[in-house]
């Protein structure tokens, strides 16, 4: 079973993404900010990170930069999920280490397609 780590400070977003992804057959873990995300990413291997931008303590950009420079973390793809639709925000996400960019609020199909694509097929 492919596993996904959702990093988002909004519990409703985590719940929504979790229920969609679990229904599609993924194992899902959650973190409320980048620091907890790093802790979880150090503790097990994930096939995909779904990362919010604005979070307290450590935001999504800082999380991506942090996991990308750590050799001990499995370098799986990351989807940044942002409230911003502008090109400069997209570029910033890619520069920090994201592999895909989705604009919030996410549509169920978008998230599921990206998850399937990024994890190399269905869960």
């Amino acid at each position: 079973m492919k596993s996904i780590l959702i990093i988002d400070d909004a519990s409703t977003v985590r719940l929504y993404h979790r229920s969609l992804l679990e229904e599609a057959g993924f194992h899902v873990d959650e973190a409320v900010n980048g620091i907890e995300g790093v802790e979880k990413a150090l503790s097990r291997t994930y096939d995909l990170f779904v990362v919010d931008v604005n979070m307290p303590k450590m935001d999504g950009y800082a999380f991506l930069r942090e996991i990308r420079r750590r050799k001990e973390i499995h370098q799986s793809p990351a989807v940044m999920v942002s409230t911003e639709a502008e090109e400069k925000d997209r570029q910033r996400a890619f520069a920090a280490g994201a592999n895909f960019y989705l604009v919030k609020p996410t549509k169920p199909n978008e998230l599921l397609e990206v998850a399937a694509l990024m994890t190399g097929g269905r869960a």
């Binding site: 973190a31 409320v32 900010n33 620091i35 907890e36 790093v38 802790e39 150090l42 503790s43 303590k57 450590m58 001990e72």
Partner: peptide, 19 residues
């Protein structure tokens, strides 16, 4: 307890026995 609820001053380190 997790520093993730407290402060961003520290770096998370994972060792064989503990985080």
């Amino acid at each position: 307890e997790s520093m993730s609820r407290i402060s961003d001053l520290f770096r998370v380190r994972k060792f064989k026995d503990a985080i």
